[in-house]
Design a protein around this nucleic acid. Structure first.
Length: 782
DNA sequence: GTCAATGCGACTCAGTTAGT
DNA sequence: ACTAACTGAGTCGCATTGAC
């Protein structure tokens, strides 16, 4: 119990016990409006504010909120606690006495309605109010999994009981959800807040929380003790009762989950063909499992599941996570979708007032499991499972798309099966393929380059296996551009970012928050990929990386790149507000409007210089300019004053960067018609010009070029100026959001206005990307 | 009530090491 | 040579506290 800091400055003792001690009160964090005020009132009236519900005797919630209902459900049955509507505080203060049990808690006692608790955005998924065990063949389950049907099934008492009693969490605490802990005394009786003391609900930001929730009381406390057989038992139970385990699942609309569910059930179905008694066997086993863990598990999964049988001897607790992932394909995907969306969900639904996020499991193994096994777990299981024929890889005419899959592709079989099972065809002849799936991990290998070159020559789309995987996961043929394989020899634009961006784009039902998280993931992917690529390209090409628009100093490996800026790129750093404008506020300073403006402006400039820069790095830079605010304060404050615009800045900067990069690459391949020799930017002096909104000057290229292909310089400059304005306005209007093919964009621009000075806008852009981007940025800034 | 400051935990990645 | 696993650093977001 966290000893409360409360009860200092206590003005009254309404919330004190007769013996003078403070009442330990916990106020649920997520649902109560005006919680700070409530906390203050409690504190000022003698209550002891608990930061953890388990240490409180009184838990205050908003019974109308999801979080509140969760609390009522989870804690309402605890005899040592009482969950009250938070208006109790007001009533007590008004009455100047605490309404306790004898007063019927002032009429504020909450009750669990027993209904399922909608989890935020998942409310669109219909849910069954009660466990709905299957009594139907797997096909129906599959269909329901896909459709997210809420249709209830006629209860199968065995499985229903098994589920209800087994998990007991959190539903089991519901008064309406049936008796708890009747038969499975080994664990169900503890699936109450008592157990949650050790394993509070919110400490499981497991993506498949809904799926696993019912199992958590079993899995978590016993995780380190369970034998593989026991894990299998749990799996059995879950497989037999997929609806039940999907019940109340926060991630129900997760396509990965859907795909996985289908694959898993297909797999079972497939294996059931070999062992027709699987279902009943599983049911019986599940039933047994629900009552008792001890009976030895028959080697059901040895043949029933598409992964290796588990050795009968426990491999030791320290390999629990490994075992878990290898044993349980059902759990493996949870790692994949755990990253942010889940933690976010869990955070929002946090039931205990615990700071920050909670690790679901070993953090270190997570990523690796994600990277290495998720494909096997989701796509590969989906693929390698029995024929769940889809038509993802079929053309509109109904013909299967033809894939050439690189022989040494990592886990090639999975990819091949994924293609085959979804309507695609495999060919060994590169020439006849529609797609070539290459192994990006073999980029150093000559084979990769050869195949990639062949694909380009043949005009075949070369993609990574991720393309197949994600198509399968999303059950549709995706735009391959984010997955295009790239040569190591040159870094193409649109390469690194699109995979990430597509992630955020493909889920059109995302909540804004999810989008932010997706953007974050994308950003991290971009940064990671670019770091890798930069390393590789630098190794292959010792020249400094060209960065036409926003030249940045040679790559600094130090994350503290902001701290020793070499030559500033782009507009000069704005001048910080003078000291005399600082507004003192007690021991610290208030963030003034001028400082906010400076921070935003400076931040934009820094992002323009380096679109991969982190907010933290920007804050460090700002902090150096305005050190009277602590760095931590800047970090917090910066995100507030930018109001998510930071991501947009980065996006714009990234777009400009990629454009410029592409242009440079193209330049290096084809000599310009009239471009003057490369020289240090003539407008470098202009960087220092703080007046960003001043009328654009003619680009250096205009001034320094005496004549162009015989065309009088004056006329040419005029035409060039017009073209520059046209194209910069075109981009500033948001015509290139990186979602369309370049050709489409150029065509659109051409249809608006033909290029005066070049044969095409594309070539024009290649030659004048610097100036175009400069103008583009001016337009954006204005 | 607002604002600034702070603490904490989750998450990711790069680098390293061990195993195959 | 490759892969898997581990570790530390950096980053980020949320909740809380304290001052006004």
């Amino acid at each position: 119990m966290d000893p409360p800091q409360a009860s200092q400055n206590t003005q009254s003792s309404i919330f004190r016990k007769p013996d003078g001690t403070s009442m330990p009160v916990f106020a649920e964090a997520g649902g109560i409006q005006g919680r700070p005020k409530l906390m203050r009132r409690l504190r000022n009236n003698g209550a002891s504010i608990c930061t953890d519900p388990k240490s409180a005797e009184i838990i205050l919630v908003d019974p109308e909120s999801t979080q509140g209902r969760d609390f009522i459900r989870n804690w309402g049955s605890d005899e040592n606690k009482v969950v009250l509507d938070y208006v109790w505080v007001k009533r007590c203060i008004e009455a100047e006495k605490a309404f306790l049990k004898d007063d019927q808690w002032g009429g504020c006692l909450t009750h669990d309605d027993g209904l399922p608790i909608e989890m935020d955005s998942e409310s669109d998924i219909a849910k069954s109010p009660l466990p709905t065990p299957r009594d139907t063949p797997v096909e129906q389950i599959k269909a329901r999994c896909v459709l997210g049907s809420s249709t209830e099934f006629p209860g199968s008492s065995n499985t229903e009981q098994a589920k209800r009693e087994g998990p007991g969490f959190p539903m089991s605490t519901s008064p309406n959800s049936g008796p708890k802990g009747s038969a499975n005394g080994s664990y169900s009786s503890s699936a109450t807040p008592t157990q949650m003391d050790a394993f509070p609900h919110s400490q499981y930001p497991i993506p498949m929380a809904g799926m696993l929730n019912p199992m958590l009381p079993q899995l978590s406390p016993m995780a380190s003790m369970m034998t593989p057989q026991q894990i299998q038992m749990l799996l059995t139970n879950m497989l037999v009762n997929p609806q039940s385990y999907a019940f109340n699942q926060p991630q129900q609309n997760n396509p990965q989950m859907e795909a996985f569910s289908i694959a898993l059930l297909d797999t079972i179905k497939n294996h059931t063909a070999a062992g027709p008694n699987l279902q009943s066997q599983s049911q019986a086993q599940a039933q047994a499992a629900s009552y008792n863990y001890t009976p030895p598990a028959p080697p059901l999964f040895d043949h029933a599941l598409p992964y290796p049988p588990v050795p009968s001897s426990s491999s030791g607790s320290q390999t629990m996570h490994n075992d878990w992932n290898s044993l349980s394909p059902a759990l493996a995907p949870s790692r994949e979708i755990s990253v942010s969306e889940i933690s976010d969900t869990s955070r929002r639904n946090s039931l205990v007032n615990k700071k920050g996020k909670q690790r679901a499991s070993s953090p270190s193994s997570k990523r690796r499991k994600t990277s290495s096994t998720t494909f096997e777990a989701s796509s590969s299981k989906a693929a390698m499972g029995p024929p769940s024929r889809g038509n993802i890889f079929t053309s509109q005419s109904g013909e299967g798309l033809v894939f050439f899959v690189q022989v040494d592709l990592h886990n090639r079989l999975s990819t091949v099966n994924a293609i085959k099972h979804n309507g695609g065809r495999i060919t060994a002849d590169q020439g006849t393929a529609d797609y070539m799936v290459l192994y990006a991990g073999n980029q150093r290998q000559k084979t990769y380059e050869d195949l990639l070159g062949a694909a380009r020559v043949a005009g075949i789309t070369a993609v990574t296996s991720k393309f197949v995987k994600e198509c399968v996961e999303q059950k549709r043929l995706l735009d391959p551009s984010p997955y295009i394989c790239e040569s190591l020899k040159k870094k193409r634009k649109r390469s690194t970012s699109q995979a990430g961006e597509s992630d955020s784009q493909c889920s059109d039902v995302d909540a804004p928050r999810e989008k932010l998280l997706a953007a974050k993931r994308a950003r991290e992917a971009i940064r990671s990929n670019e770091r890798k690529l930069e390393k590789q390209t630098e190794a292959a090409r010792p020249l400094p990386k060209p960065r036409p628009i926003k030249p940045k100093p040679p790559k600094q490996t130090s994350p503290n790149r902001m701290e020793s800026p070499l030559r500033p790129a782009g507009p000069r750093t704005p001048t910080p507000p003078p000291e005399h404008l600082r507004e003192r506020m007690g021991s610290h300073y208030r963030f003034s409007a001028a400082e906010n403006e400076f921070a935003v402006r400076y931040g934009k400039i820094l992002v323009d210089r380096d679109h991969t820069i982190s907010a933290s790095a920007i804050c460090s830079a700002i902090h150096k300019k305005l050190p009277h605010h602590p760095l931590k304060s800047w970090r917090t404050h910066f995100s507030a004053i930018t109001q998510n615009e930071f991501e947009n800045w980065r996006k714009r900067s990234g777009i400009a960067y990629r454009k410029a990069q592409n242009a440079k690459e193209s330049q290096s391949q084809s000599r310009p018609i009239y471009e003057p020799p490369m020289e240090p930017r003539a407008e470098a002096e202009d960087w220092g010009n703080p007046d960003l909104l001043s009328p654009p000057k003619p680009p250096a290229t205009l001034i320094s070029t005496p004549s162009v292909n015989g065309v009088p310089q004056e006329n040419f400059n005029h035409a060039l100026e017009e073209d520059l304005n046209t194209i910069s306005h075109f981009f500033a209007e948001g015509n290139d959001d990186q979602t369309e093919a370049e050709d489409v964009i150029w065509d659109r621009l051409t249809s608006k206005k033909a290029c005066n000075t070049c044969t095409s806008w594309e070539s024009f852009y290649e030659k004048h990307c610097d100036e175009v981007n400069t103008r583009y940025e001016r337009l954006i800034a204005s």
